[in-house]
Simulated assay, not measured.
Amino acid sequence: MTEPFEEIAGLDRLLHEPARLAIVTALSACAAADFLYLQRLTGLSKGNLSAHLAKLEAAGTVEIDKRFVGKKAQTSVRLTGPGLEAVADYWRRLDRLRDEVRDWKPAEEP
Rank of each mutant, 00 (worst) to 15 (best):
T2E: 02
T2G: 09
E3M: 13
P4Q: 03
P4A: 12
F5P: 03
F5G: 12
F5I: 10
E7Q: 14
A9V: 14
A9C: 07
G10K: 12
R13G: 12
R13E: 14
L15K: 02
H16Y: 03
H16D: 09
H16C: 02
E17W: 01
E17A: 01
A19N: 08
L21V: 01
I23S: 04
V24L: 01
A26T: 13
S28V: 11
A29Y: 05
A29P: 07
C30D: 06
C30T: 09
A32S: 10
A33C: 05
Y37N: 13
L38A: 00
L38M: 06
T42Q: 08
T42M: 03
T42W: 08
K46W: 06
K46T: 10
G47Y: 01
N48V: 15
N48D: 13
S50V: 04
S50Y: 01
K55W: 00
L56H: 13
A59C: 05
A59K: 04
G60H: 06
G60L: 13
V62T: 15
E63G: 06
D65S: 05
K66R: 13
K66M: 02
F68D: 00
V69P: 02
G70D: 15
G70K: 05
K71D: 12
Q74I: 15
T75P: 00
T75R: 02
S76W: 00
V77A: 07
R78S: 11
L79M: 06
T80E: 07
P82N: 11
P82G: 12
L84N: 09
L84H: 15
V87D: 05
V87G: 12
A88P: 07
D89V: 14
Y90K: 08
Y90P: 11
W91L: 10
W91A: 05
W91H: 15
W91I: 15
D99M: 08
E100C: 08
E100F: 01
E100M: 08
R102Y: 13
K105E: 08
P106D: 10
A107E: 06
A107D: 11
